[in-house]
Each structure stands twice: as structure tokens, then as C-alpha cells.
């Protein structure tokens, strides 16, 4: 996938996962892995970027004698997620149209 598109989608997926429930790094990355092929090295900068932009915030919870950092989506993050979702819908419309065209073309020739 094109790195630019992938980067945009990564942000959206992280926000979407966090919208359901607050979660911590490893869990988040496991959920991501179920959706798309993403290296662990890519996820940390995404989380940091979203935090710097104010789309998510963190808090620590004690867990078996150590601190675990949880990520929580902010109101601003929810707003951003909605906007991203709208764009994705738009993109989906275009993609459907393109795929439809390719299919028809293939059927005619095939």
C-alpha cells in the first residue's frame, strides 16, 4: 500500500479502536495486526503523533507491580475520527466505482 495512504489509515484505525475502549500498547498493536500488516516500529510514532496533536491522552494504571500506559481518545480525537470516516466513505464510493468498472470490463472480455 502507498505509504501516505497507509499512514492516514493507521491514524484512523488507532482512533477507531480507542473509540470502543481505552487500551494499552501491546493490546492495541494486537488489534491492529488483526486488521492490517503493520510493523511495531510504525505504531509508536503514530501514537506519539496523535498525542501531540491532542487526539488522544494517556494515563497509567498499576498492573502486576508495574505501570501500564492506557490510551484514551479525546473529544478532539472523536471529531477527527468522524472527519476521517467521512473521507473514507468518499474513498469507498470511488473505490466501488473503480472496481465495478474493472469487473464489467473483465466480464465483457472474459
Amino acid at each position: 500500500m502507498d505509504p501516505q495512504i497507509k499512514k492516514g489509515i493507521l491514524d484512523t484505525i488507532v482512533l477507531a479502536i480507542l473509540r470502543k475502549a481505552d487500551t494499552y500498547g501491546y493490546e492495541l498493536s494486537e488489534q491492529m495486526a488483526g486488521l492490517m500488516d503493520v510493523s511495531e516500529t510504525a505504531l509508536y510514532p503514530v501514537l506519539r503523533r496523535l498525542e501531540v496533536q491532542g487526539f488522544l491522552e494517556t494515563y497509567s494504571v498499576e498492573h502486576s507491580g508495574r505501570l501500564r500506559k492506557y490510551y484514551h481518545i479525546t473529544a478532539l480525537g472523536l471529531q477527527q475520527l468522524n472527519e476521517n470516516a467521512k473521507e473514507l466513505l468518499e474513498l469507498q464510493r470511488i473505490i466501488s466505482w473503480v472496481i465495478e468498472g474493472v469487473k464489467n470490463h473483465d466480464e465483457k472480455n472474459g
Partner: peptide, 27 residues
């Protein structure tokens, strides 16, 4: 950054992954 990766490893170990598996995952 180190805090993030240390926490990740601790959680992965807790989830039952071996050290080798985790390192392979992280790259």
C-alpha cells in the same frame, strides 16, 4: 520511547509469547 517498548515486551510476555517471538515481532 524505551518505556513504551519495555511495557510492550512485558505485556507480550504476559500474553505468553517467548522472547524470540517478541523480538521477531518488533523487528
Amino acid at each position: 520511547a524505551l518505556e513504551y517498548y519495555e511495557e510492550y515486551i512485558a505485556d507480550a510476555l504476559e500474553a505468553g509469547l517467548s522472547g524470540d517471538e517478541i523480538v521477531a515481532k518488533l523487528g
